Simulated assay, not measured.
Amino acid sequence: MKVTIAYIEEPPFGWTEADGTATGADIELARTILRQIGVSRIEHCLTTFSELLPGVEAGRWDMNVPLFVTPQRANTVAFSVPVWGIEDGFLVRPGNPKALSSYSSIAECPDARLGIIGGQVQHDSATASGVSEEQIVIFERQADAIAAVLSGAIDAYASTALGNRIVASGMGRSMIEAVAHEPEMNGRQRTPPLGAFSFNRQNADLLRSVNQRLRSYLGSPDHRARMARFGLTDSEIDPVVMNGG
């Protein structure tokens, strides 16, 4: 049995090594689960974020690396059980010159420019907090958005707080800085946005098998150890385990 999984260049979740092999936290989780359900051949297809959902929906590959679950996306693809929960954050220039610590802080700074990958949930989160479309600059690839932060073309790039931490630690704080969003000050504990693998709606057998293994594997010592190699901690794993995996 062969399964092809699509991924994008977005460390620590997925990236391509110098020798052409795919790696990353999401790739490792998929590989582990697929082997456990008896998949003998796993192939990886590098794509762009905007092609993930249309590609799996059209059957160009069998599954996607995890992305945030939304009702709109669930209308076109079938999601697995969630595999991580992660809040948003920004990448900014060193020292965070405009003191940007949340989407609201960008809305309150009309000359601030925010970079977002087209189609990602950060766009809706930003506009819901009052960020205007004029303040948002859309990019196709993460590398282009990061280059725009470095050049000063934009003031912040919005992505996952975890991914931004990994990028900043790799590049060095003298070049770029990761800023975690300030928590909502209403005193309520909230579940962070959840991410899950996605499948063609007709591929029920593969989805069922993957879900069955995920439910028993998520939160296990082996799962936590494998994810820790890529920087994912209990903070990202516990929300999906506590919510039933």
Rank of each mutant, 00 (worst) to 15 (best):
M1A: 14
V3C: 09
T4V: 04
Y7A: 04
E9M: 13
E10G: 05
E10D: 09
E10P: 07
P11Q: 15
P11M: 12
W15P: 00
D19S: 08
T21P: 10
A22L: 06
A25L: 11
R31A: 10
T32L: 11
L34D: 12
I37R: 12
I37Y: 14
I37C: 05
R41N: 06
R41G: 04
R41L: 06
I42N: 15
E43Q: 09
H44I: 00
F49H: 13
F49P: 04
G55N: 05
V56R: 06
V56K: 12
V56Q: 10
E57T: 14
A58I: 10
D62N: 15
N64K: 08
V65H: 02
L67N: 11
F68E: 09
F68W: 04
P71C: 10
R73A: 11
N75Q: 15
T76M: 09
T76K: 14
F79T: 09
P82V: 07
G85Q: 01
I86W: 00
E87C: 13
E87G: 11
L91Q: 04
R93N: 08
G95H: 02
G95S: 06
S104E: 13
S105E: 11
I106F: 08
D111M: 08
L114R: 02
G115H: 05
I116A: 06
I116W: 10
G118E: 13
V121S: 15
S125N: 15
S129V: 11
S129R: 15
E133W: 08
E134A: 04
I136R: 00
V137W: 12
V137P: 09
Q142W: 00
Q142D: 03
A143E: 13
D144L: 06
D144F: 10
A147S: 05
A148H: 07
L150E: 04
S151T: 11
S151R: 10
G152P: 01
A156E: 06
L162I: 05
E177C: 02
E177R: 01
H181R: 12
P183K: 09
E184A: 15
N186Q: 07
G187E: 07
G187W: 03
Q189D: 09
R190W: 03
P192E: 05
P193I: 10
L194A: 03
G195S: 14
G195N: 12
A196M: 12
A196L: 05
N200L: 13
A204K: 14
D205P: 08
R208Q: 14
S209N: 10
V210R: 08
N211Q: 02
R224V: 11
R226A: 14
A228K: 01
A228V: 07
F230L: 12
G231V: 07
G231T: 07
D234R: 09
E236Y: 01
E236F: 00
P239K: 04
V240Y: 00
M242S: 07
N243Y: 05
G245R: 05
